[in-house]
Write a protein that binds this DNA or RNA. Structure first.
Length: 475
RNA sequence: CGGGGUGUGGCGCAGUUGGUAGCGCGCAGCGUUCGGGACGCUGAGGUCAUCGGUUCAAGUCCGGUCACCCCGACCA
């Protein structure tokens, strides 16, 4: 008996559970170099679904895909002061090429602002050239000290959008559109609710004027920054000399945005929805939405399964039949539960005789008989229900773990216990922010966009404060 | 980069006071099975992370190096 195949309990050891679930579900594996990971077909399949969904929305906004180089001359990277300082500690740099020491070192991109804007400066001459709106799907490298599959690896995959505009307002519109797009994607596709808001000065992107963020909550009460969208102002435009001649003939710097969503999102997806049996993938991101499992490997059953598969494929489901002969029913059930397939259909003698198939939901574990003639209608409906149910569970968790901290004593008490998101007044002084972090591990996550101005006093220093910010321990 | 831990077939591990490597799972073949992680038989697979030292003899003792994991400071 393969008892050592049991997954650790999610509730008792989250990180152990997470690592094993990711490896055993065949989402990913470790790469040979420190901090690198392999995206296995099943895990990459989830990412491809994310790409399909997001890419369509990006194109619909008129943003075009392109590709810029992996290697960035150091001098380029050094042009924007805050940007260099922000990324210097996690840079990987190529110093040797073709066996010879390079005259100018090449950074492996940690993000592409600099290499893209060098080109933008050459491409943009006139107001007629604007806006420039380019996205790229690529990989970036950030030399992390401590790595974690999907959530924090030295190399990760993402999409980064970079736009340039004549007017600041237009840039702000794009920044806001990008965040709304991410929010919708997270809620509707990832089934992950979260908070949208503005980053503090200390937490914003290196080189940005202002950053927006989508923050989700993980099971141990830590927040995960799940995507960002930046108003770069004219900081890079000035550093890279990106200018255009306006209608009146005057030279103007452009206004820019950048925004990204990475494979880190898959880590959040796995952690947030998984249970003791393994993953629970929301149907919209499940590479296999329905797995048909014959109870026995008999020709008649297999034939029945194949016909069922054809029916479901026709209504647009991603469906497969498990035809392995050496694994028995129980083994297969556990395997597909571990892999998080939303629906499992069991076909045996009983089903064939009654013409009712047994449909098992991964989210609730519930099994229900469905007439074969109803399957084409019932299965897509069940998939929608599962998608909605996962969202509601996550939403309830988020609600139950968002607290008001009326004073610092309460703040510390919550951070020492269950954690989660804390709403608290903050005077917006970075000294208080740093102190709070030092004493409680909580950092400002964002000022929620829907928060209204209020009169209050900073939880830390007692000076007057105009807004309640969201705090949490960050991933 | 600080603290802790681990490196022995693909994976998980055992290996006594040093004597020349074993178990479980997995894998391959055959057979019996098949409604919640089946069983039998046969078989393949290891220069014990690496470098150096001590010794007649090192998986085991000593020293260095490397890698990975966990906990902290940094990050999407």
């Amino acid at each position: 008996m393969a008892f050592d195949n049991k997954l650790p309990q999610k509730s008792t050891g989250l990180s152990d559970w997470y690592n094993k679930a990711v490896l055993r579900a065949e989402l990913a594996d470790y790469g040979p170099a420190k901090g690198t990971m392999i995206f296995r077909p099943y895990g990459y399949g989830v990412w491809e679904l994310v790409q399909q969904e997001l890419d369509a929305k990006i194109r619909a906004r008129g943003v075009e895909n392109a590709y810029f180089p992996l290697l960035i001359p150091e001098s380029l990277l050094n042009k924007e002061k805050d940007h260099v300082e922000g990324f210097a500690p996690e840079l990987a740099v190529v110093t040797i090429g073709g066996g010879e020491q390079l005259e100018e070192k090449l950074a492996v991109r940690p993000t592409s602002e600099t290499i893209m804007y060098e080109a933008y400066a050459r491409w943009i001459q006139s107001w007629r050239d604007l806006p420039v709106m380019i996205n790229q799907w690529n990989n970036v490298v950030r030399w992390e000290k401590r790595t974690y599959l999907f959530l924090r690896t030295s190399e990760f995959l993402w999409q980064e959008g970079h736009t340039a505009h004549a007017e600041h307002k237009e840039a702000v519109d794009v920044q806001s559109w990008a965040m709304k797009t991410y929010e919708a994607l997270y809620r509707q596709v990832f089934a992950l609710p979260g908070y949208v808001g503005k980053k503090s000065e200390a937490e914003k992107f290196a080189g940005a004027r202002q950053s927006l963020t989508y923050e989700t909550l993980m099971p141990e009460g830590k927040a995960l920054q799940s995507s960002t969208s930046h108003d770069l102002g004219q900081n890079f435009a000035k550093a890279f000399d990106i200018k255009y001649q306006d209608r009146g003939g005057k030279m103007q710097h452009v206004w820019q945005t950048s925004w990204g969503l990475s494979t880190r999102s898959l880590g959040g997806l796995i952690m947030a929805h998984g249970d003791d049996k393994g993953l629970r993938l929301p149907p919209k991101l499940a590479p296999i939405q329905v797995i048909i499992v014959p109870v026995k490997m008999e020709a008649a059953l297999l034939d029945y399964c194949d016909r069922l598969e054809a029916v479901l494929r026709q209504v647009g489901c991603r469906v497969r039949v498990d035809t392995r002969e050496d694994e028995r029913l129980g083994f297969k059930i556990n395997k597909w539960e571990l892999k998080g397939v939303p629906l499992r259909i069991e076909i045996g003698q009983q089903e064939m005789e009654s013409d009712k198939v047994t449909v098992a939901r991964r989210d609730t574990g519930e099994k229900l008989p469905v007439l074969r003639s109803d399957v084409a209608l019932a299965v897509p409906k069940l998939l929608d229900e599962i998608q909605a149910h996962l969202y509601h569970q996550a939403e309830q968790f988020l609600r139950e773990n968002t607290h008001e901290a009326v004073d610092y004593h309460e703040f510390k008490r919550i951070m020492a216990g269950q954690k989660g998101f804390l709403r608290a007044f903050w005077c917006e002084d970075s000294v208080c922010e740093a102190k709070i972090k030092e004493e409680t591990t909580a950092t400002t996550r964002c000022l929620p966009l829907d928060s209204k101005p209020e009169k209050g006093v900073c939880v830390y220093c007692g000076k007057s404060a105009g807004h309640r910010w969201l705090f949490a321990q960050a991933y």
